[in-house]
Simulated scan of single mutants.
Amino acid sequence: MQVPKTATTQRHDGAFVTDKLRRAITAGELAPNQRLIEADLTEQYDASRGAVRLALANLAAEGLVERIQNRGSRVRAIDLDEALEIVELRAALESICAAKAAERADGAGIAKLHAVGERMSAAVEAGDSETYSEGNRELHELILTLSQMKVAPGVVSRLRAQNVRYRIRLARHHNRPAVSLPEHLEIIDAISAHDSDRAAAAMGAHLRSVLNATREYFS
């Protein structure tokens, strides 16, 4: 009697693990300096040890993970000077992306921007900093998507991920949402009006405000 063959389960590859770990770091689910233990990650992501090592190497190249000889890997922590430099770089790149979004966004994209803006406004009204922080992240990512640029969004996403500790703490600061909400709504209005110069200026002003607040709160 022939024994039927059992199906083999395909384990997740390095690209899958890279994406999952990147998202966890970006969302603040993994803290700066937190150790990343290969055996735990292979189980968590149902991946081989080789796939996990590839993912850690990929994220080290992106500046999200630090690999320490004979001690494994950990989420890379950045100091305040580096955090401020990252915001300056974001200001330059995201201003360009906002201008392109103003040129290229269609009606559906603009509707999505306004929907996010309304949720952020409601979150400020309710004093819900968690929802506001999530809306902040979603809005910036949506603008990158609407820009239709090919290189800048990936660079900005990596910069935002590296700066996650300061970015999330700032967004949840007790009075920061009320300050930044009008800045975000101005960006939305400028893109909706297809005014690229105004959109770039609004994004630049917002991120200069982020820069100043980061320096003030964390110095």
Rank of each mutant, 00 (worst) to 15 (best):
A122Y: 04
A123R: 06
A123V: 14
V124D: 10
E125G: 08
E125W: 01
A126Q: 12
A126V: 08
G127C: 12
T131M: 12
S133P: 00
E134W: 04
E134D: 13
G135S: 07
G135A: 07
R137C: 02
R137E: 08
E138C: 05
L139I: 09
L139H: 06
H140C: 03
H140A: 09
L142T: 13
L142M: 10
L146H: 01
L146Q: 00
L146N: 02
S147I: 10
Q148N: 10
M149V: 07
M149K: 00
K150Y: 07
K150W: 01
V151P: 00
V151G: 05
V151A: 13
V151N: 05
A152I: 14
P153A: 15
G154L: 10
V155Q: 08
V156D: 03
V156G: 02
S157A: 15
L159R: 03
L159F: 14
R160D: 01
R160T: 00
N163P: 03
N163W: 08
Y166I: 09
R167T: 04
R167L: 03
R167C: 01
R169D: 03
R169Y: 01
L170A: 02
R172W: 01
H173W: 02
N175E: 12
R176D: 04
R176E: 05
P177L: 02
A178K: 14
S180M: 02
P182D: 15
P182Y: 13
P182K: 12
P182E: 15
E183I: 00
H184R: 12
H184N: 13
L185K: 14
E186G: 00
E186L: 09
I187K: 08
I187F: 12
I188Q: 03
D189S: 14
A190I: 08
A190D: 05
A190K: 09
I191W: 03
S192T: 10
D195F: 06
R198F: 07
A200T: 05
G204V: 03
A205D: 06
A205F: 04
H206C: 10
L207F: 06
L207W: 03
R208P: 00
S209K: 05
S209W: 02
V210D: 14
V210T: 11
L211M: 11
N212Y: 06
N212A: 11
N212T: 09
A213G: 07
T214P: 12
T214H: 02
R215G: 11
